[in-house]
Amino acid sequence: MEFFEAISAKFNYWIYVIIMMIGLYAMIAKNNMVKKLIGMSIFQTAIILFYVSIGVKDGATIPILYHDQVHAGHHHDDHGDDAHHGSTDHHDTSHGGDHETDEFGYPTRHAPDVHIDGDGFANPLVHVLMLTAIVVGVSTLGVGLAITQKLHREFGTIEENEIHDLIKSGK
């Protein structure tokens, strides 16, 4: 069992390299344009896999606060101390009416008596970076497919070597 856990400690990183090399090989060596674009997408997802693997924490949950945590803060203003029954995280903080405010009287911190454990949630920064990368990736895939169709309209084929031959022979 320990042997498997030792493997799984780095297994994600090995697989990301393997998948990335599969995609890179397809981008270089395949003749078909659609195959090249599938290889490009596989390359992209391998990099996203790498980033997401970095952000994983053992024993951490998804980066969204629990319902109890969110609503403990809201109820506190209305009902006082009886809002604490659902949550266990924030008994250590002082829960009085001493919320900090800025010079205009607005609170500077929302629900200051909610305590959030920094190691209890997965790293949200890598998720944000990769979320936009996926959607931009599908747009670039669309541009690549449009160029493929344009090549098919010009040359009647989407094989790279046949297009090379057609260009060399002056069409």
Partner: peptide, 25 residues
Amino acid sequence: MAAVDVAFTEAAVGAGVSSVFLIAT
């Protein structure tokens, strides 16, 4: 891996829309 937003995006984009784009081409 607890990346639910990324997984949701990939389910909608990668498995859904980009397959349709490839099939259309």
